[in-house]
Design a protein around this nucleic acid. Structure first.
Lengths: 346, 346
DNA sequence: CTGAAAGCGCTAACAA
DNA sequence: TTGTTAGCGCTTTCAG
């Protein structure tokens, strides 16, 4: 087998297609973009030639010339985190179905880094930006990103956020409040009265919403939500461990710990095991999200399920639709998944 | 509040930076690309102005003009799979440090889809492609992708694969054989003689290598590797469940099950629990990779650790270096993480 | 319905 | 060391 010589044929260009089809570049361009103003006969010929040559438009030239992009940006906290990787999976899957590519950036929950990432995505002229990850309770913390995203939208870009943000854009809204209520109601229904919450950073709207749902359920049961201990820590396994330690030390009579995500719940379980506290016999534990491993923890975790992958897909589909006069809101459902980490108090 | 009129400030361009810094575009371009031929004084001023204006180069213009790209393509099986999401995390992190963006595609281990994805990345003129995920034992199965990647490299693109492939390109090579040997040696050292392997698809080189390492360790212990039962199933939790069922049914005396990745090990544990088989009392179980949740399974999983995130970062760093005359190989280390799922046989 | 020509923002010769 | 200028491949007015 002979390798072809220097004739490393670069990929065919529009001018090659146009020439071969005997039309001008303008016509070829129109034909391939399925824009009208070209006779069906000519258009078909151009498309045939393009296919024959294996022509694929250079997206850089196309974008530079003001055409449409088919690359979306996705901002996640950390793609290695299961919550975000499941969302990303939904976005990437939906994007592929529509012939789009997805560019991923880490934000590591630093809101100024977030703005910088958006700037990079804008510079890359992505057609849409999906922001996964929680918004902030305080609008001021989002001001910089908001400005950047606004500019992007004004310039014709599409923005969809997952979670509650202070941004004028379409949003996929996980039902954090409803999910929290159902988890809390489950524990209250089992008879728990001395519960404690292991929460992520208080400035995240996700944390605020989940906490709100729990408090609402507590109130609905005729109890005082003010009496509910809440320990704040990072939204991670380690955060869950340290917060659980504080709960044990400061509130010894606690019979149930509600972690505000599964990563923290994992840490809680880990620490309780280490301290010899039996779950659910001594203390019940609940999580949030239902990441894939929740079912395999020891004991299998009772948790509120959010459809992460579906949320990602929905966000992308939303991004594909033209911007509406008023921002769209797509609420998601939630489910209570009862497993082995909850039981009536002793 | 009045919306600003037509003055929708688009992003600053090179000409804006150059003008503000009082230099020509060429000089500004050189300064920002850290190319030499610019006095340090001028270069510093240009960089300051750029930072002040929040200037980010338009990668499309840059690419079109024949400059270098700073977008890498990453092919993974499924970004929702922890193994790949940890690798992706390493790639995205390293890329960000160097000012690169990462475009992610799913291949779902279909080798023709793989080729199609590479084609898309080529059309997008990415500067480098990182292929994560196993290669195939049979070179023919990779022929199409190989052709596509070769063309890409001939055109100046960089390709780095993670895992053993039949491709002429740089590679990060997880030490599957060494890791497998250490896991098998651990079990043999505990006294196990009736072991069974729960393997992923036999056409994957990862599976072949890990199996080879296990067989080598068995031989080294003076035992016949031919006597080692191997059950093949999908490389997933479900695959692990079904394979474990077959092991239990067909090889009742088994005292240790070696799963070839942690996802399968998770399934194995799940099925054993369901069937009332105590781990490690009745049967020891081992995994592979040490994904983050391995430590939180019930019982905590003994497994061979591969540094996934580091592998991703290494792959990207390799992609940044110019192509060498002969393909580079970066072997990784491995570690044996002994936890609670292994013990001497009864 | 089709073609000619003017850029999009940048880099890379080539001049100065 | 710096500036001038000609494209990169495509889309999109504006004429025909």
């Amino acid at each position: 087998m002979r390798r072809e010589p220097a004739a490393v044929r670069s990929q065919p260009r529009l001018v090659d297609v146009a020439g071969r089809a005997g039309v001008s570049m303008a016509t070829a361009s129109r034909a391939l973009a399925s824009r009208d103003g070209v006779s069906e006969l000519v258009a078909a010929r151009v498309r045939d030639v393009a296919a024959e040559l294996g022509y694929v438009a250079n997206p850089h030239a196309r974008t530079l010339a003001g055409g449409t992009t088919s690359v979306a940006g996705l901002l996640v906290y950390e793609i290695g985190d299961p919550y975000f990787s499941e969302i990303a999976s939904g976005v990437v899957g939906a994007a592929a179905e529509h012939g789009w590519s997805v560019q991923i950036s880490h934000t590591e929950r630093d809101s100024s880094a977030e703005a910088a990432q958006v700037r990079v995505m804008r510079a890359h002229r992505v057609g849409a930006i999906v922001v996964a990850g929680s918004g902030y309770v305080d609008p001021a913390m989002e001001a910089e990103v908001a400005r950047e995203l606004d500019d992007f939208q004004v310039g014709g870009g599409r923005v969809v956020v997952i979670g509650r943000h202070h941004l004028r854009c379409d949003a996929v809204l996980p039902d954090n409040i409803g999910a929290a209520e159902s988890v809390a109601a489950h524990l209250l229904g089992l008879g728990h009265r001395r519960m404690a919450v292991v929460a992520g950073p208080s400035h995240l709207s996700t944390v605020a919403d989940r906490l709100g749902g729990i408090r609402a359920a507590v109130s609905a049961h005729g109890l005082d939500p003010e009496g509910l201990p809440v320990v704040y820590a990072p939204f991670t396994r380690e955060g869950g461990r340290s917060a659980a330690g504080q709960v044990l030390d400061r509130h010894p009579g606690t019979t149930a710990i509600l972690a505000l995500n599964d990563a923290m719940a994992t840490g809680v379980l880990s620490l309780l095991r280490e301290r010899g506290v039996a779950v659910p016999h001594d203390v019940s534990v609940t999580g949030f999200d239902d990441i894939q491993v929740a079912q395999d923890l020891a004991p299998a975790l009772t948790t509120a399920r959010l459809p992460m992958s579906e949320m990602g897909a929905t966000a992308f589909e939303l991004a594909l639709r033209p911007r509406a006069a008023r921002p769209r809101r797509k609420p998601t459902g939630h489910g209570l998944i009862v497993r082995d980490s909850t039981a009536p108090p002793r």
